[in-house]
Design a protein around this nucleic acid. Structure first.
Ligand code: FES
Ligand code: FES
Lengths: 148, 148
DNA sequence: CATCACGAAACAATAAAAGTTTCATGAGTT
DNA sequence: AACTCATGAAACTTTTATTGTTTCGTGATG
């Protein structure tokens, strides 16, 4: 089952951004993530809509943090990415009037809801500044001539 | 993100199978699930390997429950299906030596592990006989002339 | 006014899961 | 023994969500 690493990647980016003076361009972020600028814009758009980052066009433009890392939680970013569900597990819907299917789906659903609630609760407890430790000199804008 | 409804479907099938006298063929199960026999065999193979069902070739062959529903838990079936992870959320691995990526992944991983542990614990608490209620007359081998 | 960088939309490539086809084998039936 | 039914296994095709790409428009800087 395919994994969605956007949360991990965006957190990584945001924390690096906090160490920058100038905005980070989509191009630069894309290089850092081994992807391309359009994908970066697509993903960051959700964060901008929620007000966590701002984007500026033109010369010297790019992406900047709009709020302090201490005011952003994992849950904030998770929500901003608009992921439907955190689980790979889904329910069947072929026999919606079959009492057995109903009972089975109810049982699974109960568990998923409880587990997701715990997960979101934990995500809400972690602010990004707690993760910005020991960064030393791994800035986003550093020219890594000797790659990776 | 794609959903995996195999757990829900297999539970449904197993409970219906419990109400049958004769083995259920892959063909019959496939019809019930709006899929095809090979997919059914592929999925049920995992359950057979763990001993929850048996398969018999030839005339009158097919799939049968090997143990009582009360001796099978949601966790058993979940494990038998061999799903790697229950989450759509993955970790990044582009900069494995970057302390920020490490911290981010650690934080996410901690939460996922805790949430998955809760989920598996709950799955272990539910035996299939608890779901086999009010089935009335929806047998797997019933000829539904007036479809679905 | 030239360049930079985002925004948006359309399109192509990728990859995982599901679906399909084919053949072999074993188990009952006649 | 011959026939039919049903699983097992392997190779292949289709589907679909996501990612990646291309192109053009717009605003901002110098
Ligand atoms: S399968 Fe449960 S009733 Fe059609
Ligand atoms: S990005 Fe965190 S260091 Fe290369």
């Amino acid at each position: 089952m395919r994994k969605d690493s956007r949360l991990s990647r965006m957190l990584h980016v945001l924390i690096h951004m906090d160490q920058l003076d100038a905005p980070a361009t989509s191009e630069k972020i894309a290089t850092m993530l081994n992807t391309n600028p359009v994908v970066v814009r697509r993903t960051m758009a959700g964060l901008r809509d929620k007000g966590y980052v701002t984007s500026v066009k033109g010369h010297g433009g790019g992406w900047s943090l709009a709020v302090a890392l201490s005011d952003i939680t994992l849950l904030d970013i998770h929500n901003a990415l608009g992921e439907s569900s955190v689980f790979t597990i889904g329910l069947s819907d072929e026999h919606t009037s079959c009492p057995i299917e109903i009972a089975v789906n109810q049982a699974i659903s109960d568990v998923l809801i409880e587990a997701e609630a715990l997960l979101l609760e934990r995500f809400r407890d972690v602010t990004l500044d707690k993760l910005a430790v020991g960064f030393a000199d791994y800035p986003l804008n550093q020219q890594t001539s000797s790659g990776e």
